[in-house]
Amino acid sequence: MDCLEFRRRLGAEPHGRDPDMLAHRETCPSCAAAWEKAQRFEQSLHGAFEVPLPEGLAERVLLAQATGERQRHVRRRHIALGLAASLLIVLGGGGIAWRQAQARALPTLAVAHMPGEIGALALTRPLASAPVAAAFAERHAALRGPLPDDTTYVHVCDVGPFHTVHLVSRPDGQPVVVLYVPARQSTARRDFRRDGWFGREVPLEHGTLVMLANRQDRSAFDTVEQGWRVAIDGLGQGRVSEL
Score class of each variant (00 low, 15 high):
residue 231 A to T: 01
residue 10 L to A: 03
residue 17 R to S: 05
residue 25 R to N: 07
residue 122 A to P: 00
residue 75 R to A: 15
residue 66 A to R: 11
residue 36 E to Y: 08
residue 216 Q to P: 14
residue 146 P to T: 07
residue 208 T to E: 15
residue 28 C to V: 11
residue 214 N to M: 15
residue 199 G to M: 06
residue 225 E to V: 00
residue 50 E to C: 06
residue 95 G to W: 15
residue 7 R to I: 06
residue 173 G to D: 05
residue 49 F to L: 14
residue 6 F to M: 07
residue 241 S to L: 01
residue 109 L to C: 07
residue 123 L to A: 08
residue 169 S to K: 03
residue 44 S to E: 08
residue 226 Q to I: 00
residue 172 D to P: 08
residue 151 T to K: 03
residue 98 W to L: 10
residue 152 T to E: 00
residue 28 C to S: 12
residue 149 D to C: 00
residue 131 P to S: 05
residue 9 R to C: 01
residue 130 A to F: 04
residue 129 S to G: 06
residue 142 A to F: 10
residue 164 T to W: 02
residue 212 L to P: 10
residue 199 G to S: 07
residue 31 C to H: 05
residue 106 L to E: 08
residue 64 A to R: 08
residue 165 V to D: 05
residue 76 R to C: 11
residue 173 G to Q: 07
residue 40 R to P: 00
residue 153 Y to S: 03
residue 147 L to I: 01
residue 30 S to P: 02
residue 122 A to F: 11
residue 216 Q to S: 10
residue 225 E to C: 01
residue 15 H to N: 10
residue 180 Y to M: 07
residue 89 I to G: 11
residue 81 L to N: 10
residue 52 P to S: 01
residue 243 L to S: 11
residue 14 P to V: 04
residue 176 V to P: 13
residue 212 L to I: 10
residue 43 Q to L: 14
residue 70 R to H: 13
residue 111 V to K: 03
residue 203 P to Q: 05
residue 71 Q to K: 13
residue 21 M to Q: 06
residue 55 E to L: 10
residue 165 V to L: 04
residue 122 A to E: 14
residue 134 A to Y: 03
residue 130 A to C: 03
residue 50 E to D: 04
residue 131 P to D: 09
residue 166 H to S: 10
residue 224 V to I: 05
residue 200 R to G: 02
residue 122 A to R: 12
residue 215 R to A: 12
residue 2 D to F: 04
residue 140 H to Y: 09
residue 243 L to P: 00
residue 26 E to A: 15
residue 181 V to E: 15
residue 225 E to W: 01
residue 96 I to G: 04
residue 19 P to V: 01
residue 92 G to S: 04
residue 93 G to S: 11
residue 238 G to S: 10
residue 169 S to D: 15
residue 221 F to K: 03
residue 36 E to W: 06
residue 13 E to K: 14
residue 58 A to F: 09
residue 242 E to K: 02
residue 43 Q to K: 11
residue 3 C to A: 14
residue 71 Q to G: 13
residue 175 P to D: 12
residue 42 E to C: 12
residue 198 F to V: 09
residue 235 L to W: 05
residue 121 L to Q: 12
residue 230 V to G: 06
residue 184 R to I: 00
residue 217 D to I: 11
residue 150 D to G: 04
residue 165 V to W: 08
residue 223 T to R: 13
residue 104 R to S: 10
residue 178 V to Y: 07
residue 4 L to V: 09
residue 67 T to V: 08
residue 191 D to H: 11
residue 45 L to C: 07
residue 38 A to T: 09
residue 45 L to R: 12
residue 224 V to M: 08
residue 28 C to D: 09
residue 221 F to E: 08
residue 120 A to G: 03
residue 24 H to S: 02
residue 173 G to F: 06
residue 158 D to H: 09
residue 192 F to H: 13
residue 233 D to V: 00
residue 60 R to S: 12
residue 232 I to R: 15
residue 74 V to Y: 00
residue 61 V to T: 06
residue 236 G to D: 15
residue 237 Q to W: 02
residue 170 R to Q: 11
residue 205 E to F: 00
residue 173 G to K: 09
residue 187 T to Y: 01
residue 209 L to F: 01
residue 210 V to L: 14
residue 212 L to H: 05
residue 240 V to D: 15
residue 157 C to S: 11
residue 71 Q to M: 09
residue 191 D to R: 14
residue 187 T to S: 10
residue 220 A to R: 02
residue 33 A to T: 06
residue 27 T to Q: 06
residue 232 I to V: 15
residue 201 E to F: 00
residue 61 V to K: 09
residue 179 L to G: 06
residue 224 V to H: 12
residue 172 D to K: 05
residue 164 T to V: 07
residue 240 V to N: 12
